[in-house]
Nucleic acid binder design. Structure first.
Length: 591
RNA sequence: GCUCCCUUAGCUCAGUUGGAUAGAGCAACGGAUUUCUAAUCCGUAGGUCGCAGGUUCGAAUCCUGCAGGGAGCGCCA
């Protein structure tokens, strides 16, 4: 980034701190940092702060009076107009048009688009996607995969070192079930025709059988034990199952443009499980209970906060974290604890994010509590998300009542996009239309996901996803395409003299200020891992740009408006493309 | 039974240290295309923020209770 490109919000904050000094209220806490936010309404200006109201409360003084004192001491030079006091004590700031124009000029030459690298960077391990062996990726994987990838891309851009880890489910009970199914119920023709779907059929069949028939469950366990003790036949079959599963998943990842740094399945940690349990026993963290090995509450937390306790019939009872079953098998939690050890000790992660649905929140709370008890102070976070529902508000299913395969969802989205492309842009060559449809279709699926608040459930709707208006991928992509169409028609190069830009129209101003805020928005996404903040920002930018595009002629304008508008189009184009890329979306040049 | 999440316009959703008159989109209604542009723009209408209390200058946001919906709760992962 160009040196000295500190965001407006940061500059205003710093000047507020400077202004508060001479006011001489000794009891302003040293760590007090005034908050400056983008104005909630453009009528109020560009930025606002409620610092006078917040401080007036602790200082027991009149907020408007305090605000006017702050303004007296506030240095506006080279930044904004004289701040205004409004309402109960808000201070509103308006960046001057000259400063705005010069910032846009800087952005045209800035590869980082005004986004600073984080001051303290860390090694961040993100655990996401995590398909299971013998199961094709389905709609249930979409949120983890797309959210995890977006967080990874954003974190990398902000300067963190990211390890994207695909923690595949390739071990334990289900493997025995597939092996048993393979040996007893395999349909070779079906397997040859569609390996993954035959594996899924076997798994589902045997899973059901072993739930009702202990005999079969026993047989499956034997297969699992054989596999885990290195039986050559089972090992070879298992490797084949993994290969089939991963090559299916890889096709999806390729379409989604998603890449992992490591793909370490649960099996990778198997050798560490037995010693881990022994160590936990020796350390007194775990203990035997009904033949199983469990970790119970240490009782040093408030019971309400303690994930190892639950209230039942008026008293707090243990819900232990089980790490070894009565039959000697290890649990989900055991692998996860071992995985933390590897990530902390070998991969040297400073922070680990688990992008996993919110039904597993108790599991993660227990896991993190166990880590705490073991003295692991690496930051562990469960990035939980809600369910995808059908329009009946029940979990989204196909018409046949099955869970939709992710590949089919993408195909359907692309097909629908293709129909619209053919209709709207029949003049484009066939292969370009196919490419556009792929980008819009896949982009629509991703955007639908990332524009939703992560924590809430949402209703899956083709109509909404591929709608041409509203907060959708096609709308965003259309804004980008419009910027590109201008540059296809522009002759000559894109050089602006530093003093040639001049902002005057409201529509120009509106996107200019938005463009300057890209660097303010991106760091916020990592605060609580909320990609929808970026989606909303880009949507507002796209809206502003469409509006500008209607109102302000670019190529036919007189100077200096022409250069200014070209600069605004150029920067909009780059921010849109960059932001969409962070969402994992690659916009076409035409549509 | 207990714990966690959810409840905002007809529909789908934003709204995060408590801040200004609660915002979008869709659907509805009314306008705009001799233009770099319609996969677009401009406008109108639409709200008891589940209900009831509390905290305070100020609550969709924090606290308590209640109702409705979802999920989880020792040998699955």
């Amino acid at each position: 980034m160009i040196e000295g490109m500190v965001t407006f919000s940061e500059q205003l904050t710093q000047r507020l701190i400077d202004a508060l000094g001479p006011i001489g209220h000794g009891n302003i806490q040293e760590e007090f940092i005034p908050v400056v936010t983008a104005a909630t309404d453009t009528r109020f200006g560009d930025y606002q702060t409620n610092v006078a109201m917040t401080l007036a409360k602790t200082l027991r003084t009149n907020p408007r009076e305090l605000a006017s004192q702050i303004i007296e001491n506030f240095d506006v030079s080279g930044l904004c107009d004289t701040p205004e006091i409004a309402g109960p004590g808000f201070i509103n700031f308006r960046i001057t048009n000259d400063i705005l124009a010069s910032r846009i000029y800087s952005l045209t030459g800035d590869e980082r688009l005004g986004v600073a690298l984080e001051n303290s960077t860390k090694r961040l391990l993100i655990d996401f996607s995590s398909p299971n062996v013998a199961k094709p990726m389905h709609i249930g994987h979409i949120r983890s995969t797309i959210i995890g990838d977006c967080i990874a891309r954003t974190a990398r851009f902000l300067g963190h070192e990211v390890i994207a880890d695909n923690h595949i489910g390739d071990w334990g009970t289900p493997m025995g079930q597939v092996l048993y199914g393979w040996k007893n119920h395999l349909n070779e023709n079906d397997f040859t025709a569609n390996p993954i779907s035959e594996l899924l059929r076997l798994y589902q069949l045997v899973k059901q059988q072993s739930e009702s028939d202990p005999e079969i469950a026993e047989q499956c366990l034997k297969e699992t034990v054989k596999l885990q003790s290195g039986d050559p036949e089972n090992l070879a079959l298992w490797k084949q199952f993994i290969e089939i599963t991963l090559s299916g998943a890889q096709e999806i990842y390729k379409r989604l443009d998603i890449h992992f740094d490591t793909t370490l399945g649960e099996s990778f940690y198997d050798q560490h499980l037995a010693p881990l349990v022994e160590r936990l026993l020796a350390e007194g963290i775990a203990q035997e209970s009904d033949g199983a090995i469990c970790i119970f509450s240490s009782n040093d937390l408030d019971p309400k906060e303690d994930p190892l306790l639950v209230q039942r019939d008026g008293e707090w009872r243990p819900i232990p974290c089980m790490i070894r079953k009565k039959d000697g098998g290890f649990n989900y939690a055991t692998t996860d604890i071992a995985t933390i050890d590897y990530r902390v000790n070998d991969q040297k992660a400073d922070e680990i994010l688990y992008v996993v649905d919110d039904r597993q929140s108790l599991h993660f709370r227990q896991l993190f509590e166990v880590a705490r008890r073991r003295g692991i102070n690496t930051c562990l976070r469960h990035i939980a998300f809600g369910k995808i529902l059908g329009d009946d508000r029940k979990p989204f299913k196909t018409r046949e009542g099955t869970v939709p395969a992710l590949g089919n969802v993408l195909d359907e989205a692309v097909d629908r996009a293709r129909k619209i492309v053919d209709e709207k842009s029949s003049e484009l060559p066939e292969d370009e239309r196919a490419d556009i449809a792929e980008k819009i279709g896949v982009g629509a699926v991703k955007y639908a996901e990332l524009s939703q608040a992560r924590s809430s459930d949402y209703i899956f709707s083709w109509e909404k996803m591929l709608a041409l208006q509203g907060n959708t991928a096609p709308y965003m992509i259309n804004a980008y395409v419009r910027t590109r169409s201008i540059f296809r028609k522009l002759e000559g190069n894109l050089e602006y003299p530093a003093d040639s830009l001049s902002i005057s129209e409201a529509a120009e101003r509106s996107i200019a200020i938005k463009l300057c805020q890209y660097g303010e928005i991106l760091p916020q996404i990592l605060c609580d891992h909320r990609p929808n903040l970026l989606a909303s920002y880009l949507y507002e930018l796209a809206q502003g740009f469409h509006s500008f595009y209607e109102q302000c002629p670019v190529l036919n304008a007189e100077e200096p408006a022409r250069s200014t508008r070209i600069a605004l189009c150029d920067t909009t184009s780059r921010v849109l493309r960059h932001g969409l890329n962070l969402l994992g979306i690659s916009p076409p040049e035409r549509m």
